[in-house]
Design a protein around this nucleic acid. Sequence first.
DNA 1: CATACAATCCCCTAAAAGCAGGATTTTTAA
DNA 2: TTAAAAATCCTGCTTTTAGGGGATTGTATG
Lengths: 205, 205
Amino acid sequence: MATKIFIVDDHYMIIEGIRSLLQNEVGLEWMGHAMNAASCLAFLEKQRPDVLFMDVNLPDQSGIDLCSLVKKAYPKIWIVGLSSFNQFSFIEKMLQNGAAGYVLKNATKEELLEAIDTVIDGKTYISAAVETTINTNKNIKTPLITRREKEVLLLIAEGLTNGEIADALFVSITTVDTHRKNLLAKFEVKNTAALIRMATKYQLI
Amino acid sequence: MATKIFIVDDHYMIIEGIRSLLQNEVGLEWMGHAMNAASCLAFLEKQRPDVLFMDVNLPDQSGIDLCSLVKKAYPKIWIVGLSSFNQFSFIEKMLQNGAAGYVLKNATKEELLEAIDTVIDGKTYISAAVETTINTNKNIKTPLITRREKEVLLLIAEGLTNGEIADALFVSITTVDTHRKNLLAKFEVKNTAALIRMATKYQLI
DNA sequence: CATACAATCCCCTAAAAGCAGGATTTTTAA
DNA sequence: TTAAAAATCCTGCTTTTAGGGGATTGTATG
């Protein structure tokens, strides 16, 4: 039986690109595409692909969230994350949320076919380039900050001083100061400038 | 005579996507593709497309730079910028560097055809979505900072103090302090945190 | 039920950044 | 070649951060 392929991506060219790469492959059946999360879910109510290529960035909902939704509702569908970016945070989250593979949008036909074969075998497919990113990033720990610390961080980024943050959060300045110290420690930086830069790097801001 | 189309983009799927959308159009001749700036320039030495779709992000050189290079060497080639991002800075720079159009990677076939028609007519093609971005951004003034201010800004973002920056640049602390004051004034912010956030927003860091 | 963690608060000191004025010398561009 | 812009340096003062200690309370979670 042919492996049924579906894709959700808001970039028309990517859809066409993948389609033209895979369309005439034997053993594959092209089921079509959706251009947003909602129509993807609507499609899945009626039909079930084997492999679902899923863009990480969708207009109505993040691919990350859609991934866990789909995986909960239809555990048999193998999801392959699709992104222009070789960015660790995306890769990590997609895999955590049940994706069985991750390919970049500059993947070759061979990579796509290998990804399909690998995931329907129940294994995880990670392309070489993505693997490198994972390896370089897995040592770099993203600081685990608390809810309150994140609030403080955002207000710091807004340009508020400790006093102003204290007023905004109805706590004392010393409390804000403590959170701030903890942020510096957790990000392993020694001042606000580096803190904000790191936080944007980790896309916490 | 058919309009000759060439594309430079490092994403295989985009190339295939555009090719499958345009390949069978009458009046168009698909010349092929390059996947980086160098091979694009090599191709142009031998053959001349009429319209050149150019990715803004290329592996060996930015599309922005390649754009002005190509336009200087071959003014008759109409360049259409190509990007996933509807980002003002990119659009602006591509157009400044001689691009005649700008389309997003989620463009439809109709948009691509319209872009081609428009630019070979000598006009500028801007898709509706991109136009909106231009309008919303042209009011937002990006601060114009000097070379030295940018150096200081980068070092601030690295987490260096005024003293350390002074040492790094072989100037006095007061000089660094002045640059810093000017940065705060130009970005219209009142402290470092907001400065770094703004600077990353404007992608100066 | 212990204990880990988050969130809150306090003290003190030193360092760094921010604010308000200056000034001089190079560069750059009209 | 001359005016504007950039880069350099200064003094004095205030506010804010950073670094070093703490401590208490509540709330989850094993």
